[in-house]
Simulated scan of single mutants.
Amino acid sequence: METVWSLVIVVLVVAAAGFIVWSLDHHHDVYGIVLPVGAAVALACLVWAVLIFAGTGYMAGLTWMPWALPMAVGIVAAVAVPIVVGRPRTKHDVALLTELLKRG
């Protein structure tokens, strides 16, 4: 049961980070609120599961890994995914709008 609580805490931390990243991004009107949150939670859960199945939660000296590593990876994902998706999408939308306005 202890490992389930570690997953709950990891998910809450990275979800909060995803919401904070979304609110601070100037291009957040281009993509939905779920993008940074979903990417952070999905990647953190995947890393957590791999670490738990590898047994790092029960090895002396490695018990920090299922806590800290998924949180760090999730926060990095919450920051990186909007950069990868948001800015190119903004450029594409502006180019498309310019093309449409030139036609009309």
Rank of each mutant, 00 (worst) to 15 (best):
I9M: 13
I9V: 15
V10W: 04
V11P: 00
L12Q: 04
L12V: 15
L12H: 07
V13Q: 02
V14E: 02
A15Q: 08
A15K: 06
A15W: 10
A15L: 13
A16P: 04
A16D: 13
A17H: 06
A17G: 15
A17E: 09
A17C: 14
F19Q: 13
F19A: 11
F19Y: 15
F19P: 08
I20L: 15
W22S: 03
W22N: 12
W22Q: 11
W22H: 15
W22D: 09
W22V: 10
W22T: 10
W22R: 15
L24N: 06
L24D: 01
H26N: 12
H26W: 04
H26C: 00
H26M: 03
H27P: 00
H28Y: 09
D29P: 00
D29F: 12
D29Y: 10
Y31E: 02
G32D: 12
I33E: 11
I33A: 12
V34W: 15
V34A: 13
L35M: 08
L35I: 09
P36W: 03
G38I: 05
G38M: 06
A40M: 02
A40I: 09
A40S: 14
V41G: 07
A42M: 13
C45G: 12
L46T: 13
L46E: 07
V47A: 08
W48V: 00
W48A: 02
A49W: 08
A49N: 02
V50L: 14
V50E: 08
L51W: 00
L51G: 03
L51K: 00
L51E: 08
I52F: 07
I52L: 11
F53R: 10
F53M: 09
A54W: 05
A54Q: 11
A54D: 10
G55L: 05
G55A: 07
G55W: 05
T56S: 08
Y58S: 14
Y58C: 00
M59G: 02
M59C: 01
M59N: 05
